[in-house]
Structures are given as structure tokens and as C-alpha cells.
Design a protein around this nucleic acid. Structure first.
Lengths: 221, 221
DNA sequence: ACCTGAACACCGTTCAAGT
DNA sequence: ACCTGAACACCGTTCAAGT
């Protein structure tokens, strides 16, 4: 007797694992926004029932922590042959790029406990700051300043992880409520954005911070 | 016949209004954290049923927007007699202070649509930047850099609006997982924090940014 | 005009039962 | 070891009914 395998409408489900769940969570958050990432939705996207997820992941907070750390793992490791502050700059740019690919990650960046990938990234960044020749104290502040700048700009740019539609709706409401008489500078500023003839704020201010640190250090000696 | 007013255990409830609801929401979020701010909890704290809130507030998103704008209203208006960049600095410090008083507000700052108070604050900040003598483009970037710095530092400092207990739990877990061999610089950095002999990063980097803008402008001429 | 009970469509998570 | 149905204690919000 032959048993014929029949193709079902639903794809044969892949076996569940922490890695598979995290990957599916990232895909879901990338495509539908973090608000759509419920345990129930996630389980459905994998072809399982909700409760199966809890065999592989402690709870939703644990899942989010793993997801954020997976994004941190996308950050390029520093080039060991580059001068320290050049490598710092490259890490900042790479972090910014990783956060841009996963808009939902930025608001979770500080909320979730750091996993191994983010620990690695922070340790590398600190090592580079300490190796840069800056004073111990300026290296300390520089670490925060750079982290801060990267995360802050991403948050500003992406509007805190809102999906495209929501963001556009808000932007439209925002523009509609703008009165050029009461908020003249806001209107002017937004036009500068729309005209797009202002360069990349991100790299300009990043360099301003890095150069400022070097200058401050030189002046203090 | 006398009707004697008897003191009840529950205080006589104040009449409901948007302002009263927003104020109660802020108190609740300040005291118990934003996670405890459900419409049901909020209504109970006011002595009403959930659905009564919807007579005065469109929905929860609307409420959060009003709450964030109430925090923005706590920011000092710029001193008109101060030089523009001095006033910018004062606004940054005042904004930082307002966000420190209401830790839940920072993560909502970019997520919620700006209300009149935040519009006012942004317009004032832009006016000051444009009046500072900086080039148009540097004023534009400076606006973002300052906003960014203030919000970013608050988020870092407050760990994204987590309540004290949660934060302390996470900090303890974090420290416990720290291995000085694999993350030597993280361990060193945290000790610098605990020893507390690093000055205020906030004002140092703020000045670094403001001074850097002036210097950049001077060099470009 | 303002308050509210019941209901709807969701959440995250636990627990006991299956295999 | 892994999957899952039922259940619990919550959410935000709508709607119709009260006053």
C-alpha cells in the first residue's frame, strides 16, 4: 500500500526552536510592526498554537530581548587595523544602519536587557574609546555621547518604531495642524526637510562630537 | 427631619474633565509607572467607571498625547534677554529636568503627536537657533542635535521609563551576568559609574555640541 | 450631557492533559 | 520532550440603555 504525500495549502511547518521563533518574530515585526507582534500572531505565522512558544522561550520579554540582541549581532565588528576613533565612527554608522533595517528595535534597545551581542558591541566601543588616546574621563563620556547620538537619531528618524502608515498619517495630521503664523520656524524647518537640501545630520553631528572630544582633550593637557 | 451627611470611606469624587483625567493619568504614571496606566486603573483612581473617560477623551492614544504635552508645558520658556545659544542651553537643561520628573514621558515623546506645548517649545528652540548667528544649515542640524541629545540622555538615564523596581532588578541581573574576562571594559565602565567620580555627562556633551556648532560655523566662513 | 452595564475582540500566561 | 485546549486575569473600545 502506498501512502501518497499530498501538498497541503499550509506549508509544512518547520520544527520549533528559540532561533526559529526569534527569526519569525523579527520578520513579523519588520513587516507588520511591533504592535502586530503578539504571541498569538507569532505562533500562527509559524503554524503552531500560542502555548507551544513557551516551550522554547521563557516569555514575551525574553523573546524581545533575544530579538534585540539579534539586531545587535548585525552590527559590524570594528576593523582592528583602523585607528580607534575611525573604528568608533564606523561602528556608529553600522549600528545606525542595523537599527534602520529594524525600526522596531530602537525603542526596545534600552528597555530590554542587553544580550551577548550588545554586550560585545558595548565592550568593543569602550575598548576603542579607551584606546583612542582620550583621557579616561573623556573616553567615558564619549562612549555615552556616541551611543546616545546613534540611538537618538534613529528614534527621531523613525518616529519610535511606528509603521509606515501610522507615521504618514501622523505626519499629515501634523502638517495640517501647522499654522505658519503661530509656528513660523516649525513650518520653515519642515520645508527645509521636504526640500531635502540639508545634508545628513547624522554624520555631521557624529563628527562634531568626535572632533569635539579630541579638541577638548587637547585643550585640557 | 434632618438629613445627616455621613463621611464615606471613598472621597467624594471630583467632576470629570479632560484636565482632571490628564492630571490623574500623570500622577498614576509618575507613581506606578506607565505600565500601570490602563484606562480601567485610571478610571478607578478617579472614582468612575472606565467608560466615563471616553466622554472626555477620545481614546488612550489621545490621553497619552495630552499627558506628554502637559509635561512639555513644564519646560521653562526661554529668557528673552539671554543670548540665543545661552537660552538654547537653558531650554535643554529645563527639558531634561521635566523629563526626569516624569520618566514615562521620554519614550512617548516621539511616539505621540506633538501638542501645542511641544510645538511652542520646538518653535522657540528653532527661533533661537536661527537667531544665534549660525548658518541656516548649521542651525537646522543644531536643532536636531540638541533635541536628540536631551532625549537620548534622558532615555539612557532612565532606562526607557521603567519603574524603579524593574530597573533595579534588571541592573542586578545585568551585573550578575558580567564577566570581567569577556567584557573587561564594560566592567571597568560600570565601576566608573558606581564610584561616581565622573562628572555630568549631560552638560559636558551639550556644551561640546553647542561649542562645536559655533566652531564649525566660524571655520566655514 | 454625562454615566455605565454588558459585550466584543483581543492580550500574556498557567496548568493539566495529551502524545 | 514537545504540543495544546481550556481557563484566568487582564486589555481598549463600542453600543445601547439609563438619568
Amino acid at each position: 500500500m502506498y501512502v501518497v504525500k499530498v501538498a497541503t495549502d499550509t506549508a509544512p511547518r518547520a520544527p520549533l526552536s528559540p532561533a526559529a521563533i526569534v527569526a519569525a518574530g523579527i520578520t513579523l515585526a519588520d513587516e507588520q510592526g511591533v504592535d502586530a507582534l503578539s504571541m498569538r500572531n507569532l505562533a500562527r505565522s509559524l503554524g503552531y498554537e500560542v502555548m507551544s512558544l513557551y516551550n522554547h522561550v521563557r516569555n514575551k520579554d525574553d523573546l524581545l530581548t533575544l530579538m534585540v540582541d539579534a539586531v545587535a549581532a548585525e552590527i559590524d565588528l570594528p576593523d582592528p587595523s583602523a585607528p580607534p576613533l575611525v573604528a568608533v565612527r564606523a561602528m556608529a554608522v553600522s549600528t545606525n544602519a542595523a537599527l534602520a533595517r529594524h525600526p522596531w528595535a530602537a525603542p526596545l534597545w534600552l528597555r530590554q536587557a542587553p544580550g551577548p551581542a550588545r554586550m560585545r558591541q558595548m565592550d568593543d566601543l569602550l575598548r576603542l574609546m579607551y584606546a583612542s588616546g582620550l583621557s579616561r574621563e573623556l573616553a567615558h563620556h564619549g562612549f555615552h555621547a556616541v551611543n546616545n547620538h546613534v540611538l537618538g537619531y534613529t528614534l527621531q528618524r523613525l518616529g519610535m518604531g511606528l509603521e509606515g502608515t501610522d507615521l504618514e498619517d501622523k505626519a499629515r495630521d501634523f502638517m495640517a495642524g501647522l499654522d505658519a503664523d503661530t509656528y513660523p520656524f516649525m513650518v520653515a524647518h519642515i520645508h527645509e526637510h521636504l526640500d531635502g537640501h540639508t545634508g545628513s545630520s547624522f554624520e555631521l553631528v557624529l563628527d562634531l562630537i568626535l572632533d569635539g572630544l579630541v579638541r577638548l582633550d587637547r585643550e585640557a593637557r
